[in-house]
Write a protein that binds this DNA or RNA. Structure first.
Lengths: 242, 242
DNA sequence: CGCTTAGTTGACGTTAATCAACTTGTGTGG
DNA sequence: CCACACAAGTTGATTAACGTCAACTAAGCG
C-alpha cells in the first residue's frame, strides 16, 4: 500500500522545505505509485529514456557512470529525499545510472506529467531548478575533492559530508548512522583504488576519527574529521522536496 | 553600444536552439546591458549574491572554486553562449567564481526579473532547467575524467571536448582554434600539477596528436585524440541560448 | 561443505608531485 | 634604448603517494 503524501515521513525532517496542503495535494496527484527494490537493483540506466521520475523515500543508493574501459565513477550517494531522474525528464536521456545499495522505497512520478507540472506550478518548477543547481554545486565540491585533496583528506571529506547529511535526515543516533555501501563504492567515488581506500579508512579508524564497519559509520568528533578534510562544517541547506 | 538581441552573433551558430521573434523580443526586454572585461577580471565571486546574470557573448573564461588551502579547482571552461550566474539566481549565492581568460563581452540580465521570467515564460524556465541539467551532466563527465583517467587520457579528453565545443561554436579554422588559457588552468581543471601537465602536453605534441601553444590549439585528427582519451566523439547537444 | 562477496594486509612498481634551474617574451621605468 | 622585473612555459632529478598483485580471513548462502 503506497504511502499517502499527506503522511510522507520525510515531511518531518527539517532538511526539507515544508509543503503547504496545496503542495501536498498537488504532489499526490503527480505521484503514480511506489517502488520497492532490493539492494543491487538498478532503477535507472545510463542512456535510458525512463518514463518515470522518483523521489527516494527510504534507503540509499548510488549514481554512477561507466567509462568505456569498464571503470566506474560514482557521481554521488543517494539519500532519502533525493529527486532522481531529472536528467531524463529535461534532457530526454539519463547520463548516469542509479542503483540501490540498501532496500529502497521510491515514490514514482509520471514523466509525461512533468511538462504540465512545469507550466502550471512555476514555484515548483523553480524548486526543480533549485535542485538541479544544488546538484551542480555538489558536483563541483566533489570535483574539488577528487582533484585537489589527498586520499586521507578526500575520505575524511566524504565521511563528513555523509555524516552531515545523515544528521539532517535524522539517520544519526549516538553519533552512528547506517551506511550500506561497500568500500569499493567509496573508492569509485573518490577515484582511489580499493586497497588504498581500505588502508586510508583503517588509518582514520586507528586515529579514532571515524569508524565505518559492518554497515555503520561512527564519527566521534565531526569537527576533528572536517579539519582533516580541510573543510568547514556547514549544516546542509534546506531543500525542496518533490 | 550594446548589441541588440535581434543581431546577436550567436544566433547564427547551429549549436543553439533558434529563437522565435517572440523569444528574441523577450530576451531583449530582460537584457539590461553589456559588460566588456579584460583578461583576469573576475565577473562573479564565490559567495557573492550577484544581482546580475550573464550570457557570454564573446571570449572565454573559467569557473573555479578555491579551497581553504588556497588550491584552486577549475570547474569548467566558459565559452560563448554559456549562461553564467544561475546558482546565484536560484540558490541566492554563487558557489564558485568566474573569471575572464581573454577579453570578454557579456550580456547582462537583471536577476530581479528572473522570477517573473520563470512565471511568465514556462518554456524558457524549462530551458534554464535544461541548462542546469546539462551542466550537471558535464560535471559528471569531468568527475569521471579526474577520477578515473590517467594524466595523458585526461589531457586528451579535455582537449577533445574543447575542440568539439570550439567546432560547434564556429571557432575552428584549419583544425585550429584560439585557446587563451594557461597550462596552470588546465592543470587545475584536471587535478594535475603544472609540471606534469606541461610534460603531458609535450608528449601529445611529440606524438603529433595535439599542439597547444601561443594561445592556439591545433588538432590534426580528433578521432585519434579521442581514442587516447578513451572517449567516443559526439557532437555537442544543441542547447538553449539565454 | 564449497562458493562467493567484502574486507584486510604486505610487498612491490609506477605515476605523478615536488624542487629547482633555466628560457623566452613582454612590459616598464630610468 | 637598455636593464629589470614578471609571467608563462620547459626540462631534469628526486621523492612520495598511490596503484597493482597476491594471499588470506570472515561472513553469508545454497
Amino acid at each position: 500500500m503506497a504511502t499517502k503524501c499527506k503522511y510522507c515521513p520525510l515531511h518531518k525532517s527539517p532538511l526539507f522545505v515544508p509543503h503547504s496542503d496545496e503542495d501536498t495535494r498537488f504532489m499526490q496527484r503527480f505521484k503514480v505509485g511506489e517502488l520497492v527494490i532490493d539492494p543491487g537493483t538498478t532503477m535507472l540506466m545510463e542512456g535510458s529514456k525512463s518514463p518515470q521520475l522518483f523521489t527516494a523515500l527510504r534507503g540509499m543508493g548510488v549514481r554512477y557512470k561507466t567509462l568505456e574501459t569498464g571503470q566506474r565513477q560514482v557521481i554521488n550517494f543517494v539519500f532519502p529525499g533525493d529527486f532522481i531522474g531529472l536528467q531524463a525528464a529535461v534532457m530526454g536521456e539519463m547520463q548516469h545510472s542509479v542503483a540501490a545499495s540498501s532496500p529502497m522505497t521510491l515514490c514514482v512520478f509520471d514523466r509525461a506529467e512533468f511538462w504540465n507540472f512545469f507550466r502550471s506550478h512555476p514555484e515548483r518548477a523553480f524548486d526543480v531548478t533549485w535542485l538541479a543547481a544544488m546538484e551542480e554545486h555538489f558536483l563541483g565540491e566533489a570535483l574539488a575533492s577528487v582533484g585537489q585533496r589527498s586520499a586521507t583528506e578526500a575520505v575524511a571529506w566524504s565521511l563528513t559530508r555523509i555524516m552531515l547529511r545523515g544528521k539532517a535526515t535524522g539517520l544519526v543516533q549516538n553519533r552512528t548512522m547506517p551506511l550500506p555501501y561497500r568500500q569499493q563504492d567509496l573508492a569509485d567515488a573518490l577515484g582511489l583504488s580499493l586497497v588504498h581506500t581500505n588502508k586510508t579508512l583503517g588509518k582514520l579508524r586507528d586515529r579514532q576519527l571515524a569508524n565505518w564497519s559492518d554497515g555503520y559509520l561512527y564519527v566521534n568528533d565531526i569537527e576533528e574529521l572536517a579539519k582533516i578534510a580541510q573543510m568547514t562544517v556547514e549544516e546542509p541547506m534546506v531543500r525542496p522536496l518533490m
